[in-house]
Amino acid sequence: MTTIQRIWRIKNILLRLISTRCLECGFIAYPPKASCPKCGSRKVVEEELPKVGEVLTYTVINVPLKGFEEFTPLIIGLIKLGDAKVLAELVDVKPEDVRIGMKVVATLRRSTKTLDGVIPYVLKFKPLTLKLNTTT
């Protein structure tokens, strides 16, 4: 279970999905790194990731970690967002309907309470459904 300090410290990264892009080799890393994991360069710049992507792989967790009982079964996906990958919870979809390659979009949702009893909000991902405008 996390703390309010942690959520406060990294809220900008979590809610805007801030990655780092290397100015030397171009490698993009999420979570953001102080130096490039690929070439070691310290010349990295922050870059906001797109909020729409596709599921690279996923799992449905039946045995929860302490504190996540109410979110079980918990669907976790690794999502391709542009040139980066982000691990996050998948919501608004039944476990049996999740597919590799499924298009998803970020959505702001409640997470489990912190140790201090605060309710943090994080980005989760839901299926992207294109709604056609049928009114003329």
Binding site: R6, P31, T59, I61, L74, E89, V122
Partner: peptide
């Protein structure tokens, strides 16, 4: 812990 455990993902997950 900051960026992945925060979503409740277990080691098996």
């Amino acid at each position: 812990a900051d960026y992945e455990l925060i979503y409740g993902v277990s080691f098996a997950g």
